[in-house]
Design a protein around this nucleic acid. Structure first.
Lengths: 225, 225, 225, 225
DNA sequence: CATGAATGAGACTTCATTCAT
DNA sequence: AATGAATGAAGTCTCATTCAT
């Protein structure tokens, strides 16, 4: 109910609730998390939770928003804007994988899973958050295109899918196998992924570029026959 | 309950249940689908459903398995094994997008979403199915590597993520926007994605050589017209 | 859920639930009645109640509708349509008081009270029932007007208020005092009320003429004894 | 809590609370009004309300009592004691309808509705207030009887029902339709109602009276056969 | 085989009220 | 006097699943 608790005590409580909720939602997912368990972990009454949040959905949304805020903050703060596009991409990919995997795979799973659910879940309300979270990548890609380092013959949207898609997949594999990745694993994965991605994103040059264009045009023409 | 349905009538029933379930799960997602609605759509008793399936989870698993079988079947049947790796990749990507989007986005959403849920959902049991469904792609990539067309300096697993991740992302975007893609949209998306992916997957030298060959052949052919 | 249970067992259950609900709603009023208590009185699970009715409101509506049906049925069946208007009014008032008071004052209170509540109670949905229940009276009054026995210089609506208002008041007094009225009490009340009402309703000249006729007839009859 | 508020500031607070409560109870009815909303409208803490009132019930009782006081005060102040009984009745009816309808139908609905509810509502405690509020009418009727203008062959209690019942009904109809009555509407309703009522209340005279008595006696005698 | 019926277990949410500060 | 905070106690409703017939 209270939008901004004023007292220190209130803020502490609110944060404690968010923290506990983060745990529970991360462990159980949205549908299987219960307000009862959240309250129980804090040793408070269930009603108290509803003093601070209008309901389960709002609570979970807050959890996810906090989480995204943290990630976005770190990405934006550390992004080497002056460096070449490939370096920026590397930073983005690497930082992401690190944050998600080192920090807690549960929330990662929550976001990945609930972002896809239908009905009265949170899918709908998660979308804006995800969009905000995608912004740094879009900006990065746009900068790369302007600098001539990233190809411009493909819609930005698709480039985004190309980057985010594999990352999500890698993340999910790690999460679902419950085999914690070491920092070294993460670095290796980031290295390989960036190398791969750059092959796709980089603006082609010279003969190779011309040849590729030829091939694509011929291929497309053939399909029309 | 019955692991081996006996009568022909029984098999019909069972299939009808699977069909209705497919609809409901596709429309509502796993958590929000109810056994009551499945039964109601068939005009049968809820209890009857439980005569054929141990429970909701098993039922949904069957639905997804059937769905995967269909896709895998079509992919395997149509895969141009003799064609160059790029052509095979093109077939894989294109066919996939077509099957998912033309055939019903609901199940696509179900798989994408539930494949990620935790707890007593189906996440766990979905994994083997997804692995089986990934097999044709893995084989394709391996063949490409052996033929020298696809780079071998990166783990296969990562290549798989690179292909499947963006496809899933594209699919999800289409699904969640509820804006039905036309066949033309799908073709365009497949074109662009394959072009992009090939830039990442192609064995550097191999590609250059192959492209030169293509240019020469096409040039020769043109001269003959 | 089930709109019309087919089996005898089901019908019995449904009726039992309605019966128990009638009791509870009558005793506690809508807001303070609980589905738990209804179930408990029948020794069944609360969930069973929801198998037969969509919810508390629907259940209560059914209770009231049944109750109204009974009253309306008796009124319509017994109404002496051929008799003078005053006799019809007498029948209406007397029967009403009898049915309400002899049969159970609880429901009477429920209807009187809940018909007036705001918000998510049943007020809204009770209105149509009350209108149906008012119909016999309206018809009676209209017939009386056509026959020249009831004054026509006042809107029908007002005449209805004049009849129903005092009845409700009398009923409420009886109900709230929890002092059970004897049949004799009811008869006396009906006598007095009808006398009073007729003074207000009767078409001035018509009444005088009718009374003179009565006097003459009674006089003649007496002479014959 | 405090039965005798001390400071002037305290009295102001208390009155403000009563005022806000009046609004909320009028808008929502007793059951659906919340102490939270009352406090919120005043920008004070919920706990403060409980500093001034033992609880919700007491608060609402105070609201209603104040309201009744106002009405009774106006009725008693303006009653033309020297005028004929019919004029006094006219004043009573007209003033009542005006006060209720012009002043706010919400409280009217509250009283009408809650005066009928059972259980832990306020029904019980409302009764004394309603009795006090009925007093002016009873006095009016008694004076009329003593003056020979109002019939004495019927219990006073019944006459009261006859007056109050229709008024309440009219009020309720107006309230529940949420169609605000104009002062002209109210005047017309009062005119018609008083005319009607007077036909019932007036002491009959001469032949008409005798004939009515005959009819009623014969009727009663017949029912005994 | 099919099903009508029943239910256990629990979920989320509301709110008047209390109490330490 | 005022209040922020906390809560006990309930309440309505959902649903997969079981079982006797």
């Amino acid at each position: 109910m209270t939008d901004t608790p004023l007292t220190a005590r209130g803020r502490q409580r609110l944060e404690a609730i968010v923290r506990a909720s983060r745990e529970v939602f991360a462990e159980k997912g949205y549908e299987h998390a219960t307000t009862a368990e959240i309250a129980q972990r804090l040793g408070i009454s269930e009603a108290t939770v509803f003093t601070y949040f209008r309901g389960k959905r709002e609570l979970c949304l807050r959890v996810v928003a906090d989480w995204y805020d943290e990630i976005i903050g770190r990405i934006e703060a550390g992004m080497p804007l002056a460096a070449p596009a490939r370096t920026q991409l590397d930073f983005f990919v690497r930082t992401h994988l690190q944050l998600f995997l080192l920090h807690g795979t549960g929330l990662c799973a929550l976001v990945l899973s609930e972002g896809r659910s239908k009905g009265p879940g949170l899918g709908q309300d998660l979308a804006p958050l995800q969009r905000r979270y995608t912004a740094p990548l879009m900006a990065l890609l746009a900068r790369g295109q302007q600098a001539g380092a990233i190809r411009t013959d493909v819609p930005l949207r698709l480039l985004r899918h190309l980057v985010l898609g594999p990352m999500e997949h890698i993340l999910w594999e790690a999460v679902s196998q419950a085999r914690p990745l070491t920092p070294a694993d993460i670095d290796a994965a980031a290295d390989a992924l960036v190398t791969l991605l750059w092959g796709a994103l980089a603006a082609p040059e010279g003969e190779l570029a011309a040849l590729r264009q030829l091939r694509d045009q011929v291929g497309a023409a053939l399909r029309g026959v």
